[in-house]
Design a protein around this nucleic acid. Sequence first.
DNA 1: CAGTATCCCAGGAGATACTG
DNA 2: CAGTATCTCCTGGGATACTG
Lengths: 119, 119
Amino acid sequence: MPDFINDNHLFHNPVEFALSKIGGTYKMPILWRLKERTWRYNELRKSLPHASDRMLSKSLNELLTDGFISKAVFAEVPPRTEYRLTIRGRESIIVIDTLRSYGLKLMSEFDSESNAPLR
Amino acid sequence: MPDFINDNHLFHNPVEFALSKIGGTYKMPILWRLKERTWRYNELRKSLPHASDRMLSKSLNELLTDGFISKAVFAEVPPRTEYRLTIRGRESIIVIDTLRSYGLKLMSEFDSESNAPLR
DNA sequence: CAGTATCCCAGGAGATACTG
DNA sequence: CAGTATCTCCTGGGATACTG
């Protein structure tokens, strides 16, 4: 597996590259929410209460730059912005779904381990 | 999706939990290598030249603690240690494979984008 | 409403040295 | 051979304030 350079950064395997694009705390949660319909900025913010404006904005901008989502700005008062998945974003959903299901399985496993009978 | 507490740490979604267990720079590369057979410590080290002893050892210990791999120590001279996947580790391979294939796809996409014709 | 700008901190990861 | 112990560094992310 040869190394890979993108955007001036060096990656040693495909997983590392994939997670550089859709990893981090908020990108998959955002993509996952956009699965079915467009979302407005404040909707995302309310749905992701742990994300500060800074992190939400940063994550959205990177997903935009990398072509996973697109954004439509409507010149209304008050302003309205809608985010939606691009084709590339839609292609990421199956991967997120796999990780999500696996996470749920691990959660139930680790849950029963920690709740194991005391003897 | 309710929050989840494990090992005194708070997680907000299943993906976050899954990546807390098999994420980071070296865990998936290690699990992936153990897919077919047992590996010795120095084999892993040579195969992962970017991982320092500290990081390799730390990653292996966490994977051991979390039940993804097991270790057999042979009382020989020189000492021999063999790491192998547990059932839980084997179950992670399909997820890693998904992420890996997706990473390869993204790599080829971003590669052709950066090599796009100049007009 | 939909963001950006600053400042700050913790922890993941690197480098190096040492050991049963 | 198979690790652990220290020390340091960097960057992902948090908190807060401000704006078209």
